[in-house]
Simulated scan of single mutants.
Amino acid sequence: MSELHDSPTAWVARHIREYVESGGERGHRKWGVNTLLLTVRGRKSGKLRRTALIYGTDGPGRYVVVGSNGGLPTHPAWYLNLLTDPQAGVQVGPESFPARAVEAIGADRERLWQMMTRLWPQYDVYQNKLDRRIPVIVLERTGTPT
């Protein structure tokens, strides 16, 4: 297995470390919401990159994340990486599993956007100040937990 490279953002890296070192007991619930760890392959480097994201659920085995990038004008690297290779690793609490990323579109995207803004209202604030449309991604479980 390739070496994992955690987010270069210090507070995100601390969150990931807390999540991993506790086996998902600490860090899963953060800031009043559930978070997961997403591992993707870098589109340029080929390295495995891990970040922490707020998530919602949309039925069994479907985890919804938002590419807000903290309200920055550019898409987050993890989203761009998933466009190149939609295969990902996901950790939700103590459970890790493979997943495939699918970008939500049309009415499905609108429904999931509403769900996610109820969980984290700041997403609407970000969207209102941006020219880009913030992507909504569904991580669909493709295998059994490890």
Results as ranks from 00 to 15, higher is better:
M1K: 07
E3F: 05
L4Q: 12
S7N: 06
P8Y: 00
P8H: 06
T9I: 14
W11M: 03
H15V: 00
R17H: 10
V20P: 01
V20N: 11
V20C: 07
E25Y: 10
R26D: 10
G27A: 02
H28P: 01
R29F: 13
R29C: 11
R29I: 10
W31I: 15
N34S: 15
L37E: 03
L37K: 02
L38M: 03
T39M: 09
G42I: 07
R43Q: 08
K44S: 11
S45V: 10
S45G: 10
G46A: 13
G46N: 09
K47I: 02
K47G: 06
R50M: 05
R50T: 09
T51C: 15
A52H: 09
L53N: 07
L53V: 07
T57A: 12
G59N: 06
V64S: 04
V64M: 04
V65E: 08
S68Q: 01
G70N: 08
G70Y: 03
G71A: 11
P76W: 11
P76Q: 12
A77W: 09
W78Q: 04
Y79L: 10
L83W: 09
D85C: 06
A88W: 00
G89S: 02
G89Q: 02
V90S: 03
P94V: 08
E95G: 02
E95Y: 01
A99F: 05
R100M: 04
A101Y: 04
A101W: 00
V102L: 06
E103I: 11
E103Y: 08
A104G: 03
I105A: 14
G106I: 00
A107E: 15
D108R: 14
R109L: 04
R109E: 03
L112T: 03
M115F: 13
L119H: 05
W120P: 07
P121E: 04
P121R: 06
Q122F: 14
Y123R: 02
Y123V: 04
D124E: 14
D124V: 09
Q127V: 11
Q127R: 13
P135D: 02
T142E: 04
P145N: 07
T146K: 12
T146N: 08
